[in-house]
Amino acid sequence: MKCFLRSLTLLVGLFFYASSHATDALPTLTTPDDVGPVVEQPIEFPHFRHAGDAKDGGMQINCMYCHTYARRSMVAGIPPIQKCIGCHQSIESVRDKPRIQKLFEYWDAKKPIPWKKVHDLPDFVRFNHERHIQRFYFQQDRPYQEVCGYCHGNVKAMTVAQRQKPITMGWCASCHQKDHPVSANSSETGHGPNDCFTCHK
């Protein structure tokens, strides 16, 4: 009995200690607080210029033109510098802009650009871009900006990307529990997987 009481005291103490932290950090869904910190990048890449709407001076380039692996692989992929140069070598009008000059410096030195990760999931979590893009973009035929935007927010209005959503397990699950139509023309619905090992390594 003595031993039980002692364990209980320790347990209750630990619980209060832990939960005092828990309440502080308890996430609610998508509030301004969920926006991630501004991440400083080696080149301040203007997403709004490339992906933005024409009326805002954007080029309306499909996200997957540069992040080409999103539909074929786990990761969306940061485009190789080769890709940037592919277009920019023939866009003389912006060639002398400081950011483009910096880009060519990296290219000439054949050095990769040390981008900082903006959406950095913990190492025990697996997120598969391909599955989501195939489902929502190809099968359900939704607009790409909407599909990418579910998790990445309105990137077409940003310069360098900044996290817009909490990207926590609760937030992922809130979507996985919703019923979605399985394809564009179907009345049948289904929801995302809820097995632990689908996402957790």
């Binding site: 828990a22 308890l26 991630g36 190789p80 050095k111």
Partner: peptide
């Protein structure tokens, strides 16, 4: 106790934006 600590860790603490480098190919 470990479970309690783990539960309290479910906030944004595990997302570390801007910490790691994602190096692209040239």
């Amino acid at each position: 106790g470990g479970t309690a600590v783990a539960l309290s860790g479910c906030g944004n603490t595990s997302i570390q934006d801007g910490q790691e480098t994602v190096t692209s190919y040239v």
